[in-house]
Design a protein around this nucleic acid. Structure first.
Lengths: 226, 226
DNA sequence: ATTACTAAGAAACGAGTAG
DNA sequence: TCTACTCGTTTCTTAGTAA
């Protein structure tokens, strides 16, 4: 990935192309990146070719918006800065939520060899098949947001014969109270999540729901190591 | 500032050259930035020429550490990412500290035309000459740290005939309780501070110490708009 | 082993032009 | 105006060499 491409991508994000498409011409973009129109146009083409932006050309310019891949790339750089400037400011964030029943895919994914192997190597345990899903209130969603800014423990995606499985990241955590101090667990955040960001997925070597005698609607508090 | 230079600078920061000098050779650095030894060596030379790193060549490599200028450059990029990803998550941070008497330079600096003009234009008031200095406990120091991550309201440095005066940044704030709701004030953070980061300097259009009937040792709480 | 040159080769840039 | 080419020119990179 060329560094100029990354700078262009960042500029587009700053211009607001991360949340919604923005309209701009090569000419305007040239001013923004302080280059010639040709170079600006080439950068936008390149960005599209690399799959980092969606692009739609119209009569008097183009509509540009970052793709998920583009956002991911940008986040990687962002993590580096977090690392440089805020590496060890906070150690833990506390997130609370109410237990809900998931869609069952947690069970499917956590059982896959491609993930299990990584969980064991990187987290130190083989997860019980399934995830504990917590529904988060506004306050905890804000705390959850801090995890976005963190690199976490990286879980790589992989491919099987039939399909590809996306990557994600984990954070070690512990459930507070409930005498669960001794149980290792981890928050898992897929890159392309099927849940909105108001659900927190937790994995653990044991069946937490039974181990802690939890039922839907119970409040669960967890301290996440970031 | 070439983009390749910035990438190299970031890499050095990640390698730890921000807090203390690190020893590395062009060969090692070449691996880190995935380039030839020649390019790596040239980058280090360039970085030094631009005043972004201190460099000391020894028999089997070199000692490298970022300069303040280098760190400032890096922070600028960091702000961009903050802007992109965390723009409006928090609005305020609360910082509490105990009133102490400063060294008197606050009085000197706030009275300088070069600063006064900017305060009036950017903060909306001409500061009373002097700063209110708060000594921060551990918890508030952590809150104070959040300001480092923010761009704030930029105050530019300037030169007089005799010397140069450094820049810094400000954050609007309000003193909580004490019926001070109506008094505009601002936290001021010089780029090259004479205070360690456990002192918070506040300026205001009025003499806060009298206005709020404060004396050394009193606890003052402030909400800083970030 | 280093760093620091030089010079050839590769890559990127921007003026000009077409559609 | 716009995007998207081509094509000289400039800039950057790397191999080779010296200290």
């Amino acid at each position: 990935m060329s560094v100029n491409i990354m700078v262009s991508l960042r500029k587009l994000a700053l211009l607001g192309a991360i949340a919604q498409p923005i309209k701009l011409s090569s000419g305007h973009f040239a001013e923004a990146i302080k280059s010639s129109v040709q170079t600006a146009a080439r950068r936008l083409q390149e960005l599209e070719r690399e799959g980092l932006v969606h692009r739609r050309i119209i009569a008097d310019g183009q509509w540009i918006m970052l793709t998920n891949k583009g956002i991911e790339q940008l986040k990687k750089e962002c993590y580096e800065y977090q690392e440089i400037f805020f590496s060890r400011t906070d150690i833990e964030v506390e997130i609370a939520g109410r237990l809900i029943t998931g869609l069952g895919e947690g069970k499917y994914y956590t059982a896959l060899e491609g993930y299990k192997r990584q969980f064991e190597a990187k987290l130190g345990f083989i997860p019980f098949p399934g995830t504990l899903n917590l529904s988060l209130e506004a306050q905890s969603r804000a705390a959850r947001k801090k995890l976005d800014a963190r690199k976490g423990i990286e879980i790589e995606g992989f491919e099987s014969e039939k399909r590809t499985f996306g990557g994600g990241k984990c954070f070690l955590c512990k459930i507070v109270e409930k005498e669960a101090g001794g149980i290792k667990s981890a928050v898992i955040i897929p890159d392309r999540t099927h849940y909105p960001d108001d659900v927190l997925e937790i994995i653990s070597p044991v069946y937490l729901r039974h181990e802690l005698q939890l039922k839907d609607g119970d409040e669960v508090r967890t301290k996440v190591v970031i």
